[in-house]
Simulated scan of single mutants.
Amino acid sequence: MIKKKKLGFIVNPVAGLGGRVGLKGSDGAEIQRRARELGARPESPQRAIQALERIEEIKEEVEIITYPFEMGEDEASRCALDYRVIGTIKKGETTPEDTKRAAREMVDLGVDLILFAGGDGTARNIYDAIGTAVPVIGIPAGVKIHSAVYATTPNNAGELVFLYFLGKIKKLQEAEVMDIDEDAFRLGRVTAKLYGYLNVPHEERLVQGLKSGRGEGEASALKSIAAHVVKNMEEDCLYLIGPGTTTRAIMEQLHLPYTLLGVDVAFNKQLVAADVTEKQLLDLIAGKKAKIVVTIIGGQGYIFGRGNQQLSPSVLRLVGKENVIVIAPRTKITALQRRPMLIDTGDCEVNKLMSGYYQVIIGYEQTVMYKAE
């Protein structure tokens, strides 16, 4: 009889809750309450299911050990996998302590690997609880993901488990656990801190990189990129300007106020809405011509699905790939080392619709063709 591999499975049910409603994070009961009042729905359950579905092919060789209700049981029950529920929680009122306790109990039961869905805060909880006691893989489900312990997509998280349990990935790599001050983040200040390392089965094409900041000497490049975008702005067209210092240069060129870490909307070179939610965007673009301006997240390569969840699958369907403008200084393109730009919207069909080649603006009247997937 084949001894089954034990997979610890933890879901942070509120991870990503604040993304589409523009709250720039989900930490804390008050933010979660506000997110729900704004109509937010949890992102992590469906993303966790996507990861588990990839493991169904080796279901005879895997036993899942998970926590009750929305912390894993609900998701595991929807997949063709054997699972066992341990521990107790207060349904609908999960806390970081529940995540820590779940991780510790799973290590005590001898799991071979822990698969968890969440964001940077969840990675911190796992690190605080177990350190490097067992390997882990993160399913990306948060708003902000600076840590390098996550797979590039939920499906690739499942792929990593699949390959690791089959012995096709043997290498473990110490990956950084990073987190930021969300209160400062909402005020436009990014203060990331290294909290420690977790051991992650490593396959470069499946694991996301550590988010990097702006390099030296980029200021002039950003100005020339912004000048190109502004010169070519069409009349009577809404421009949805995504977050980041690269896109900020466009708003500065237009002499408009901006939300560094949110999505702003301009029309005929005037600001019409600031720091918008998904719902506000859908209302604004209904029946109108619109374009989206985004940049590449340095060190990771994402253009959708990290920090700009307001640009949701519904928004992207309405705007269309042909109306997406990608801007990036040449240094960001070079740093990708020919790896593709990444898209992880949470909707597999939209990911495919938005994949393919983009004409990336890298300077004034300078573009390169680059692939996204």
Rank of each mutant, 00 (worst) to 15 (best):
D181W: 03
T246E: 06
L166D: 02
V207S: 03
E204A: 13
G215P: 07
G215Y: 11
Y258G: 08
I169T: 07
D183E: 06
G188Y: 13
A192F: 04
S224H: 05
F165N: 10
Y197W: 13
L166A: 02
V161I: 13
A219F: 08
G209F: 14
V161S: 09
Q253P: 02
V200T: 04
A227R: 13
D179V: 03
L210M: 08
I225Y: 09
L210W: 05
L163N: 13
I250G: 04
E234W: 01
I241H: 08
L160V: 15
L166M: 07
I225R: 08
E159F: 10
G167P: 01
T247K: 14
M178H: 01
F162R: 14
R186S: 14
G242E: 14
F165K: 14
Q173N: 03
L222T: 05
H255I: 03
Y197T: 14
G217K: 02
F185E: 01
P257T: 12
L256R: 13
R205S: 15
I169S: 03
V200H: 09
A249N: 10
E174L: 02
Y239P: 12
I241A: 03
G244A: 00
T246C: 01
V200R: 07
D179Q: 07
H228S: 13
A219C: 01
P201Y: 03
T245K: 13
T245R: 12
